[in-house]
Design a binder for these strands. Sequence first.
RNA 1: GCCCCGAUAGUGUAGUGGCCUAUCAUACAGGCCUGUCGAGCCUGUGACACGGGUCCAAAUCCCGUUCGGGGCGCCA
Length: 429
Amino acid sequence: MERTYLAKVQGAAVNSEINVCGWIQELRALKNIVFIVLRDNTGTVQVTLKPENISNINEVRELERESVICVTGVIPEKTKSTSNREIVASSLVILNRAEKPLPLGITDPVSADFETRLNNRFLDLRKRENALVFRIESSMLWGMRRFFHSKNFVEIHTPKIVAAATEGGADLFGVRYFEKEAYLNQSPQLYKEIMMSAGLDRVFEVGPAFRAEQHNTVRHLNEFTSVDIEMSFADHHDAMHMLENAIRAGIEGTLEELGPEIASSGIRMEIPEVPFPRISYRECIAFLKTRGVDVTFGEDFSPEQLREIGSQYSGFYFITGWPSSLRAFYTMPSAEDPEISNSFDLQYNEKEITSGAQRVHDPELLTKRFLSKGLNPDDFDFYIRAFRYGMPPHAGFGLGLERLVMILCNLQNIREATLFPRDRTRIVP
RNA sequence: GCCCCGAUAGUGUAGUGGCCUAUCAUACAGGCCUGUCGAGCCUGUGACACGGGUCCAAAUCCCGUUCGGGGCGCCA
């Protein structure tokens, strides 16, 4: 018999036989009757077992919480259960028993440290509200993928193992690659740009990025998921336009799929209005000065300064026109104002989630930019070559998926939005 | 990497030098009761991160280590 998801039990026909499978969330063995609250991926339902119907009832009485079972039974017309429906079992199959005690209770009225939760993530995610974060991430990503696909983007996959000289080096993880030295890539940047020269026109990639920085904060991971796009014959305005509409599409799709559950979980998620406000770096400096914050042109904003800015500009907004000195070598300087670049960050309140820009497409300028950043252009020959034989103007961005989910779910720690976070000290599980 | 804070049963906690053979809840085990549903009642098992030191006496004070939390820095 085909398995029925527990969420479908409410709407299933009474008196017909059904088969349900899941975990024993609670078991109450009374003298003449046994009740099980069964849980699966979709919900819970009470299963009622009467000794006269169940041959292995004594074995069932001894089952541990979180053991895995399948039950066949019927839904009676009337139930004495305070839940709307129950299943009166005709048979119960024990598929796998759980050890006890549980290292983390699923329904216990005691909280658990986040570390305990991470060490037992498989149990932690049996809680629906914890798993919801990852359902939201999935829906969000599907929404953005559909959007990019509709805009003629090609989804690509670039190497995560790269040669020593590719990226300057200091904050990369080294790996042994047979007889060579190699590194884990910190961004698909160079490769997605090469695809512009290849004529793919518009590309996006969803993949891991690795940073060997010894940061220890609630918003940094050493391995995170980057949603990257690059588009030809485009500038930073086009990239910002694409980004805000991708986010809007992602949230629309997420609310379509998970709206009721998101609402009942207490997460406030709304479809943002586009376009997002654009605030220039220079405007931010001027604003901070009106608030008595001492800040000079050419400095990155500190967390405290970003909180100040975020108290003025809430929700999604762009900070545009960052000083060229703060941006990577491939960032296009502004034609009108040589001190700044055609770049942007997408912020949500005080949090940065995306960094993007129009890119340099002229190989001579690119070489100068390398030199001004103290990098040796020879180390990037595989990259610059793609610029010498017809590279179109292009622009793009990289978005931190976990940071986006963190914002959408109003989480205080980015690790909450990561199944198995990799931070300064954690590599297990 | 720097600064601050922390580590007590499976889980979450109380306890700041002797009153601690360490509190409470939950979980677990046994019993009573019961179409239960945060089930109820009774009984029981179970812990001071590790290594040094101070002291008549250390969960408690000091040093180190490990791990964790927060902040900063770093951060294509």
